[in-house]
Structures are given as structure tokens and as C-alpha cells.
Design a protein around this nucleic acid. Sequence first.
DNA 1: AGATTATAGTTTCGATTCCATACTAAAATA
DNA 2: TATTTTAGTATGGAATCGAAACTATAATCT
Lengths: 197, 197
Amino acid sequence: MDSRVIAELILHLGRIASGDGFVSGLTPVQWAGLRYFAQANRFSRTPSAFAAFHGTTRGTASQIIKGLVADGYLKQTRSKTDGRSVRLDLTKKARAFLGDDPIEALVRAADALPLRVRGNFSAVLQRLLGSVALEAGKPLFGTCETCVHFEGDGCCQEGMSAYECGFVKEALTADELEQLCINFESGKPAPTRVGTA
Amino acid sequence: MDSRVIAELILHLGRIASGDGFVSGLTPVQWAGLRYFAQANRFSRTPSAFAAFHGTTRGTASQIIKGLVADGYLKQTRSKTDGRSVRLDLTKKARAFLGDDPIEALVRAADALPLRVRGNFSAVLQRLLGSVALEAGKPLFGTCETCVHFEGDGCCQEGMSAYECGFVKEALTADELEQLCINFESGKPAPTRVGTA
DNA sequence: AGATTATAGTTTCGATTCCATACTAAAATA
DNA sequence: TATTTTAGTATGGAATCGAAACTATAATCT
């Protein structure tokens, strides 16, 4: 019986914290877009990936992005390796605006929680999201840390960090290990493994 | 740094779990309305209270309700004591439909959590909602259990339960103690108190 | 290679949502 | 009695979103 209360609290909290109407000139959807492109790694900063993440169609995603580009929050670059693809990057203007995101009220509230509580709480949220995303057939985004495609024993064999993604087969910078990726696939084999095909 | 992750998870989870588009013929907003009127006590089943809860305007709330009434999910009754006021009650049809609510996916996910975790988790959510609602100037709904207006020592003095709301000055049934109320005011004086004016 | 199919992204259209504003009617207050 | 407040409803315009159609590039299949 507590479960229903939890579910309703999450939905309600999400709605309240999204901020109604315009905040600092952006709509809730536009803020969601900005947040996404601020956190997605370079393989995932595309209209399609955003659509998948946000749980909408590519058409809708395209519109949201168009608005953000027009207002100077995102910059578009065509991919050199794939002529169809496009990458979106936050402009300086956008980064400066991130602090006005209405989500900050919720961030502050979470920040007031005891450190220990935060960790548990966040883990439970992750778990709930995993279940719901699975059932709804939505892709689950995640970071390299627990991804099956992550290869690389952090040790610097020859002077350079040896992180690599086995899916796109490219090297990864340290920053990118913490960014969201659409190719994420959950799987936590022992941290020290060597790839058993 | 974990706080931001928490905030984004909540927003994301809320969006995914709201269900996109129509589910069983109702839109996400209509489902939200149905849930509200299923859980609000008789003082709070009004357009205004729903607007306050849902964080929208009375006009928008009125539209949502109009649709639900037209589709036979809600029944309108004018108040006898206040000619302006209107009370909305769920129809049998609506109660039968509640199980199809897209939120059920999230409910099931929460239900899979260990009992002990659920309690803590729910408490933290409550706390976050309290902070955010306060900061956003939104009213906080709650139940009699922790409301300052709740009067009555559950003991049955003369054969009937003596629960009463000091705000509307009316007797309360046992059911109503668990329903959401717009007149809720947080405050947890000692459970056994007698009203010090 | 050439034809077919799949993918990335965009555009357009219609339905829905929602806020702002204006409005009616019934309390509450002066 | 006159004024103000409150409850609820309508209307118009902007924004959102999904479905479907469309363009262009890549991948696949004879």
C-alpha cells in the first residue's frame, strides 16, 4: 500500500519540480533538452538519442532542438564519418544559463539530505527507473562504470589512459566516463575482467 | 554532486512513468485528475483544490475536469452550503478503470522493493516534496495524521469515533483520515493533545 | 556495381494542453 | 446596501506532441 504513495509522490514531485511555464525564458521541455545535452557523451548528443532518452519521437525531438539552436543554446555540427548524423553541443551562453534551471530547487532539496541517505536514495531511484524503463520498452541510459562495453584497466600502460568503448571502438577521455551514453548496456561482471567475447 | 543525479532521476522517472500519449483512452493529465479525485477527501474534491494540487490554474483544471465529466469518469454535484462550489466524485466506471493507470508500472516497481527500503524511501520523497513545494510557493497536501487541525482522541467516548477537523469543524469518518486534504497544515505536536486554542 | 532496405534527421498537420484574460454568480466584508 | 473576494467557467492564442510524409546518406543484398 506504500508503493502507490511512492509512485504518486514521484510523479507529483516531478511535475512540481519541472517548473511551470517559462523560467528564465525557457520551457520545461527546453530545460530538459539542455540538461540532456549537458550530460550526454559525444556519441549520444544527437536528435535520435535525445528522442530515445526523453521518451518521445524523433520529430518532436527535432523541434525542441530547432528552438534551442535558434535561440543560441545549441550548436549543430555535421558528422564527418556519417553524413546523415548531426552532433549538438552546448554554447557558452547555455552553460552560463544552466544555473537558472528550475530543477535547481530539487537539487538543493536533495543536497540538504544527509550524505548517507543520498547514496541509498539514489540507488533506489536507479533501480525503479530500470524496472519501469524495461517494462515500457524504453532504452536505459547509463555511464561507462557499469556498462558491458567498457574496456580498459584504468592503468596507464604506455603513458596514456587506456579507456575504450568496445561498442563504438573508440578511446574515451576520463570526463566521458561519467557522461550518459545511449549505447549503455547494463552488466556488472567482476571489475577486473579481460573480455571473454 | 550526487544531488543533481537524484534530481534528474526523479524528473526523468516521472516523465517515463506518466505514460506517453493515450493509455486506455486517457491522457496523462486525465489520469492525474482521476488519481487526485480518487484520493482527495470530500473538502478537497473541487476544481480549485485540484488546480492547487496539480500546480496549474483553475481554468486549466476546469478543462481537465470537463473532459472527465463528459466521458463519464466524474460526477458533479453542487454544494448545498455554498452555491458557488462543486464537488466531484468518481463514478463506478472510473473506479473500474483505475487499474489501467499507467502509473501502475511504477507501483509494481516500488512494490518489488524490500519493505524496509520502501519506508525510508517514501519518507525521503515526502521531505523533498516538502522543500520544493515550500520554495515554489505551492500548497502541500497531506492527511490528518500529521495535521494541526486534526482533533480527536481516537477513543470512542460514547460509542462513536470522535475524529474531527478543527478547520472545517466537521466530524471525520475513519476512511477520511487517510485521504488527501487541501487544508492540511504540517505540525506534529504530541499525539495526545487537547487543543490549546 | 546496382538495387533494395534501413537509418538520421526534418517538416507538416491536426489534436491536445495550457496560460492569460475576461466573465458570471455567489459569498463575505465593509 | 455597496464593495470586494472567491468558485467556477469560457475563449483565444501559443506551445507541445505524435503520426505520417519526405530527403539524404549508409548499409545490405543479390
